[in-house]
Amino acid sequence: MSVLYAFIFSGTVCLLAEIILNHTKLTPGHITTLFSVFGSILAFFNIYDFFIKKCNMGAIVLISNFGNSLYNAGYDGFVKKGIIGLFSNMLTKSSLVITSTIIFSFFFVCLFRSKD
């Protein structure tokens, strides 16, 4: 059942992005930024956690989860250590995405050459 939920949720979000992409002049760069900011807004209203609980990976593979994890980590830090915690904790949960992207990308860029 959760597979179906994951399919529907991630498919719907991608469909939404496609509609925005087709009917406005925004580029894919705008769209990814918009959706990650939208993720932290959803986290602000405690909605994103509900989606993660319902459809697990369907919500985690999306870029909106980046904003969500930033927000959650920042809030946890604030609860634990106050304003210092907000600064020092912000990137902890999304560290995996940022670090792995940097490492893999640099590795492959060194190995391969651009086609054109």
Partner: peptide, 18 residues
Amino acid sequence: NYLAAFLSGGLLGALSQI
């Protein structure tokens, strides 16, 4: 375009869930 986006996005989510 809509169909392609919906199916591929959904498939990615469903596969990673599996």
